[in-house]
Design a binder for these strands. Structure first.
Lengths: 214, 214
DNA sequence: GTATTTACATACCGATTGGTACAAATAAAA
DNA sequence: TTTTATTTGTACCAATCGGTATGTAAATAC
């Protein structure tokens, strides 16, 4: 039957009535909804339908809307957005940027996903109620940008980038492209079209030994 | 007294009680509010306070929220966003893109303006209620992109761009940067930082006679 | 069996949403 | 002065917002 799966530890029998939902599946559904409609655009009614839970159960299991969104955010970072770590670990600054943007395009245009990046669009322009979430997403984006900056500084030390490279600007260039790509994806841009953007954007990547454009 | 200014035709005396508001000033205030909070994030209560009008007067003068937003959109296009026409009229494709992005940075980081572009952020991710507005803004952005594409096709004909230039991709590159810059501006990025992005982005502009990067 | 624990489900809460009815106010026209 | 046209301001509308009280269902513990 459908409520056989319990999210808690295996053998230990819990005392009361067993939950009718699976914690992780419900959170996944919540993520899909927030991802698609943004924080403010997602109503509790929409969450109820998506998660297939009634309101008190959601509150008991995940807290209020804001707390739930924070859990969704964690899931997003360790799930769809996990490719970022891999990109930053690439051996050269060029590959870091290229892999990050390429993987982002793939993620954001995946047909089974909502279009656009949840961290970019989740609470971009919103009313005063969502200000907390807005600030949180802004700091997440700033943090990513800082990670690129640090990575590019290392690249500069390794002579993988010219000595006079403005790594702060270069990091912002990458995140700005990502944010633009996110908007484009949410507007229906195709994967191919956005890969074309990445190609153009990467053509002028600074090289340590001045190379001539082909 | 404060209600002396009437927005209607000069000498013709209107019959009933004179309006206590100035049509254009009220629309300007509405624009500021929508610009700052987005379509969904702006409540009628916020508009009432910003426009200094009571609700029935707003409805009588501007229609409902959606109709009002459309008028605000027209004002935005002919006002803050009017620089676009000038940019497209620049003599070379390079100058078109450079002027567009530079002017956009100036507009979007102007301290007296709300941060970010209203057409980008006005209804990016939102609930089903704002779907109409969302689609409208998407089509406005697509239209701008098409205008760049047409302009770059002309540039190609004029040998201002290489014959093999993918003008569709190049146009999308420019609008993607703009949209990314808009997100950055709304997140608090400074004018200088964003000008740095524009500089980096313009370094690889395609030239008709293959030039060597300095 | 009964007690206890946990989750479900209905029904509700006050506040806010976008939108309106209606009467008082203020002007010109008669 | 009365009539007519127009705007204002208050008070209201149903619907929805996020959030909760409460009773019942379903499991284990005793």
């Amino acid at each position: 039957m459908s409520l056989s799966e319990n999210t808690n530890t295996d053998a230990i029998k819990r005392r009361g009535r067993p939950p009718a939902f699976n914690h992780d599946e419900a959170l996944e559904k919540a993520m899909q909804t927030f991802w698609k409609y943004g924080y403010e655009g997602t109503s509790m009614a929409a969450l109820i339908e998506a998660m297939d839970m009634n309101k008190p159960s959601i509150y008991a299991a995940f807290g209020n809307k804001e707390v739930l969104f924070n859990q969704v955010l964690d899931k997003y970072l360790s799930g769809p957005s996990a490719f970022v770590k891999g990109a930053i670990a690439e051996p050269t600054s060029y590959l870091v940027a290229k892999k990050f943007l390429t993987k982002a395009v793939e993620l954001l245009t995946e047909h089974q996903n909502p279009r656009g990046c949840m961290i970019v669009q989740g609470a971009l322009s919103c009313g005063p109620e969502a200000e907390m979430i807005q600030k949180k997403l802004i700091s997440y984006r700033a943090n990513l940008e800082e990670n690129f900056k640090v990575r590019f500084d290392i690249a500069k030390d390794n002579k993988d980038l010219p000595d006079d490279t403005n790594t702060t600007a270069l990091a912002k260039y990458v995140t700005t492209l990502h944010q633009g790509i996110s908007v484009q994806a949410s507007s229906g841009a195709s994967k191919d079209a956005l890969m074309g953007i990445v190609d153009i954007a990467m053509q002028n990547w600074p090289m340590p030994f001045k190379k001539v454009k082909l």
